[in-house]
Simulated assay, not measured.
Amino acid sequence: MTTPVLPPEGGGSAAQRADSAEFPTRSSVRRAEAAAAAAASGRRGSASSVPAARRVLRSELVARRAAEHHASTTAAAVPATRSRLSVRRSVVSVTVMTVTAGLFGTVALPAFALDQDDPATSEAAAAAAVTDARVAGGQTLAVDAAVTGVDATRADWSATSQATLDAAAAAAAQALAAQQQAAQASAAAAASSSASSSASSAGTGSGSSRSMATEAIASSGSTGQAAVYQAALQYVGTPYVFGGATPAGFDCSGFVMYVYAKFGVSLPHSVGSQAALGTTISASEARPGDVVVFNDGSHDGFYAGNGMILDAPKPGGYVSVRPLWSSAVHYVRYAV
């Protein structure tokens, strides 16, 4: 059922009447109810529809007021929500700016503190500071004026070519061969002289027993020592090895011990003990193959004649024939 809405009491303008149409007053509601009742009674002839019309109008009025209240409440809530959102955004913006400024200050300010104008100038200043520190902690050297006035020239040094070295090695080999030949000739001459001396001594039958023993040693040693020397020459070039007594490597007393063992003479591996077991002879009596012993007991080797020695020299050296470099020696002979 549609209920007509009447204009407000006392007439009024068209705008007021339009507002009243949208927002009914109590008086308009009453008039509308009366009109509805009259119309209903005229059409149906009954007053039972009046309460129903009132209920409809009241429900419409309540609905309109609820809508107005909801609209006003929503309109008030929207600015409040927007205000809270704007506050949150402001707080976030301030926080981000603060953190960014802190990071920038942490990274950039040390660089600005070094030199805000020119990095090259900063590096130069740092290098200068290092140089100053070195100079301050360094040492000073004073050179006498007499020294600085002396002319410095390059010494007359030159490199030796491989051809020169090869030639020197060949000359050394030839010299060694010549020494060996001379030693052999000397040993042969000594053996011949000793044989003649032995025959003469036997023919005369004179002399004491000691001289006869010495001559016997000399006679047997002349030929025997030559054989010992020839045997020792076979090991020229053997490397020196401390404690060595084999062809793989010799030391001085090990070399003497090894060679004499081939002729049935057992010697200890010691310079002092070897000297004590032999017969000491004079330098004039010494023949190639006799043993040269240094007086301090530091070294020994085979006498090679003509002031030479055949020995195992020292670490890094080789068995070789070389000049005897000291006169503080004595000679020992063994009966072979």
Rank of each mutant, 00 (worst) to 15 (best):
R58P: 14
H69Q: 13
P51Q: 01
S192N: 15
S186T: 10
V321W: 03
N295L: 04
S161K: 06
M1T: 07
Y303R: 02
S326D: 09
G105A: 15
S28E: 14
A183G: 15
V56E: 11
P247N: 00
A248L: 07
A32M: 00
G45M: 13
T140L: 07
A146F: 12
S266L: 07
S326N: 13
S161T: 14
S201G: 09
Y229G: 06
V332C: 11
D144A: 14
G237T: 03
N295T: 10
T140V: 09
F104E: 04
A175F: 01
S49M: 02
V293C: 13
S194D: 12
S192T: 14
A52N: 07
L109G: 08
A248G: 15
G307S: 15
R210N: 12
S83C: 02
Y229P: 10
S320E: 14
H70V: 14
R210F: 05
D115L: 05
E33Q: 07
G278K: 00
A172W: 11
A37V: 08
A71N: 03
A163N: 04
G138I: 09
A18P: 02
S59H: 02
R30M: 10
V241E: 11
V241P: 06
A185L: 01
A261I: 09
Q274N: 10
V332I: 15
H70R: 15
A304T: 06
A183E: 08
T73D: 06
S200D: 08
G316V: 10
